[in-house]
Design a protein around this nucleic acid. Sequence first.
RNA 1: CCAGGAAAGA
Length: 279
Amino acid sequence: LFVSNIVIEMYGRCGSMVDAQEVFDSMRQKNLFTWALLLSVYARNGHLQEAKSLFDKMPGRNLVACTGMLVAYTDRSHLEEAKTLFDWMPERDLVCWTAMLTAFAENGHLQIAEALFDEMPERDLISWSAMLSVYARHGKLDKAKSVFDEMEERNLVSWTAMLAAYAQNGQVEKAKQVFDKMPERNLVSWTAMLVALAQSGQASGAKRVFETMDEKNLLTCTAMLGLLTNSGKLQEAKLVFDQMPELDLVSWTAMLSAYAQSGRLEEAKHIFDGMEEKN
RNA sequence: CCAGGAAAGA
């Protein structure tokens, strides 16, 4: 049973919903983990309908299943349904409170998110970090900073959230200070720093950071790509683009619009035709 | 310990 559960999760991570469903169907015994896992597979891949019907069929709906469903709703911007589900839940814990908070914040309801944060019966490191990011996303840097200062413990994610807050709002110097003060850094923090430099036009600094990084992923490369296209360095951008380990909608679109905006329609068309997914 | 919430890219 445990092994099958792990296999379902594995397929889910690769986006192979059909395989995950197949394993699920072939299982003679299932536990709550099994159901919740398949639900999260559909939720993560944006298949709200499947998630919903699975949720309705579930033998027992616990907190985990409800929270998974709640997140599935918010990812597809069904805030009303998420809220209804939240209100209907017989029990709520930290995790679903935080999920609900994020849901409101992502749909532009800053005040409701704030109120939820105050109402929460308990808060942990994750809910504090969530609130920090909510303020950052709404451009409330001072509030984000005071949340950060009020936190009694911080980890890599909360430090990176603070760094990203400055990065997204064009405060390179502050971002640098945070970056230097952080006890540890990972790929995400490095990428956030890269974005801070790129956004303030410090191309050489950004390039240096990019070349220094020993680990890069799709997001890192897309950030670099954005810097190059924004400064009109199309050929360099194309080089990065061609060397990227994988491409997605965001990176394809970045390259496409770079060509489009500089009037290189044939190149743009070529990129467009090569896109594996379009929206 | 086999499941759910927070951080980076157009």
